[in-house]
Design a protein around this nucleic acid. Sequence first.
DNA 1: TCTGGGGTCCTAGGACCC
DNA 2: TCTGGGGTCCTAGGACCC
Length: 441
Amino acid sequence: MRQVYALVDCNNFYASCERVFDPRLENKPVVVLSNNDGCVIARSNEAKALGVPMGAPFHEFKRLADHDKIAVFSSNYALYGDMSARVMQVLTQFTPAIELYSIDEAFLDLSGFTGRDLTALARDLARAVRKQTGIPVSVGLGSTKVLAKVANRIAKRNPETGGVLDLDALGRHGDAHLAQIDVKDVWGIGRRWSERLHQFGIHTALDLRAADPHLIRRRFNVVVERIVHELRGTSCLPLEQAPPPKKQIMTTRSFGERVTEAEVMREAVSSFAARTAVKLRDQRLRTGALMVFIQTSPFNPTEPSYQNSAVRTLPHASRDTGEIIRAATSALQEIWRPGYRYMKAGVMLLDLSPEDIVQQELFSTPVVRDAAVSLGPNPGPGRQSLLDVLDRLNQRMGRGTLQYAAEGEGEGRAWRMRQEHKSPAYTTRWNDLPVARAGEA
DNA sequence: TCTGGGGTCCTAGGACCC
DNA sequence: TCTGGGGTCCTAGGACCC
């Protein structure tokens, strides 16, 4: 049986999401900015054609936006996450053998479909996604995941493919394409490794495929060796249908304005801690330890710089926002130094375990507490349902509806992110539902 | 002035154990 | 005078991904 993988990749995903809800943006340059409106993280084809590079600081292109040459959006992850779920839902209609690889990409194992015209199947798939979600996708087919990635890239760059390409169907012809692909654009090869590969005379995907795997193993490592095998059609990277449980969960932010006061920093860190706790409960996990870090700007050499981090181990694995905030602020207290202008902070939850397994302390003294406020390993029903109510309410009414006092109040706090160009949460908030009027669009 | 956030995997080296 | 070797666990750092 021929092994066939498909990589389905949404075209310019964030920009396409914005477009779905505002058809006036069709054929116009659109860019989406990173958190804090810092730099460009997504571009429509028209924006690419205007020469806006990926990762470019936004201020360099602000003039174009001011003159209405480009439509600009702050990132709206509630919208993108929801649109992603809809796209993936369409894909699972075709096969359950699917790996949700990222917010805008999925691998499919199409091996069971041999005998059928796979290119035609891929076109059906792309059409279905477009029709049901409004999002355009490209599909690459190959006998390994790395080859499917390569095929997808070729499909995207060659309009005559119509966004769908089966590398195996190209035969020898495929080599010509591989020779066009810089080795740094092969999935898994970044800037550093491509520089080293160049030193060995390996410049293209075709060169890498021709390299001796043993030699690559010795000069580099197993990761690069596996890529060579994958390029040769030997599958080393299996489809991961069930995602492995998370090993860490973090919330980190650059501040809208520099933070100089301890009280403000405590509020920000509390807020990040609360956010990680919500993510933790979404994943049905508990945390046994957390790390807090704070840092000044690494970009400004004239200012005194400082960065530090501290870890706290919790007495027992917890999923409780209050406990996580307390541990985080305690860690912060240890590393806080006045006199600096802080640019960024973060909270990382480490040592995660499944929600339903609770490691008892070896020498814990039994303490009788009011069941409603117990913070022990088996918090009373009152505490559990408080957390559930908190999560459900915030899910229904929007993030931040109910929160801990320590997080500080108001969107107005200067440390909060700048998001001056944010679109509404069209699909996840009742109040933001798009309205269709006769005569528009 | 401005330059994101959230993850994973692999390796090397030290501590520690028998 | 001689002073092993193998194994595990943990951490830090470097690389990669979207």
